[in-house]
Nucleic acid binder design. Structure first.
Lengths: 129, 129, 129, 129
DNA sequence: GTGGTCTAGACCACG
DNA sequence: GTGGTCTAGACCACA
């Protein structure tokens, strides 16, 4: 799996890393139960500090995406996180803003849904969640 | 229009304010050409710092949502921002992450599209953009 | 409120701090809504690094004990955390071990319950949760 | 006696093992004088490192739970550890924190005592210490 | 070897 | 001023 960090971005490095790992799971590049590189390895690979990787791992762990096995290190959870009330609320809030912005800029309902469909299909083809 | 700031949110106040104004436009609560309260007034109304409101107004202006007139203050632009390449790229990036997260948590394509449709319709009914 | 860190202890500093803050709430020394010192202030007061305090605050925030107001910093939550399933499971697990140990060492049921009562009463007298 | 290690737990494996052995004694599943499997055997049974079992055995020995005989291996002590000052202090400290946490979350005195009673009774029924 | 903890110093975003 | 982020280097516990 290829990870690419944009050091110029407003988005914190640990958050970019977090998102890319989640997208990796959705794409099927990271399978359930698959081991991740150690924090030191990952940090070296992408040229960042190991504490930053550590932060990402811990967040993903608290979200349920990762489990940390005392013997083997970090791995993708066998059971991914589910749809909690908190998550649903967050999702709605995000979508309300994103769609408001898109709508104001003149993107039509169909156009927007087509983008979503396309993204969704790219995940459904390649993974087995 | 009712503005509600969550001071305990991770999202900066100026960004919360920005999003709510954009949603206000989408909902039709803020019409094109409509004047916004002065920086001072707005700050007092919602109990935040004057600089914070200023920051929001300036961002919205640079995005094309607002036009700021020395005499009349800030008003919603007559021509709202359009779909630039930068915006499109940003939108795709955001959706890729959001949908990846939703997909991992077991939300189906239909389910997701339905949420989007619902939000979209709520805007199309109430505004005339 | 007086905080005392044992630098020789096996228990991490951030955990000692976390526990003492929780006990402070139980004792009524920290009221709901009360502001806590800034991470820098707290760190200086007890002679530890500000990142360590930061870690404690973030854990307490994720548990629901603290809320971080963007304007005023950290404060005790107005609504303290409740009894979740996770918490209950953790509590049972802890008690099963503690009581097993106490029982093996010859502490009687009554003796143990009396200790608990005493501790409990000391909290109920002094706070209003 | 069944031992179950959670490799994803925060609690170190050697400590999980230690606690389960103590609970085994309290439950009467391990009688005074009873021999424990050899370090090698135990390690193999539960799929952990030999050194880890060794560490557990040594701690339990230093606490007085085990006696280690060169020929016969480890066995549950005929006289279990008693209530030392150190232990009492530790117990108080633990209970102060646990009860503080429970109290803050709205668990009542009675509720808490009932849980303790229930756990205690489960031990008193099944063992003869 | 792994992750966890702690310290230290720097810069930035926010209000 | 506040907390958030990132880097760096050190030590330790664990397996």
């Amino acid at each position: 799996m290829i990870l690419k960090i944009d050091f110029e971005s407003e988005t914190p490095i640990y958050e970019q890393l977090r998102r890319q790992i989640i997208q990796g799971v959705a794409k099927g590049e990271l399978k359930k139960g698959e081991e991740l590189p150690s924090v030191r390895q990952m940090a070296e690979d992408i040229g960042i500090n190991l504490h930053t990787v550590n932060k990402t791992y811990n967040i993903l762990k608290s979200e349920g995406y990762l489990t940390i096995d005392r013997r083997k290190g970090a791995m993708i959870s066998d059971s991914l996180p589910s749809v909690t009330d908190d998550y649903k609320e967050m999702l709605y809030g995000e979508l309300e803003y994103i769609i408001a912005n898109a709508y104001c800029r003149g993107i039509s309902n169909d156009e927007f849904l087509n983008i979503c469909k396309k993204v969704f299909n790219s995940y459904e083809k390649d993974s087995d969640i």
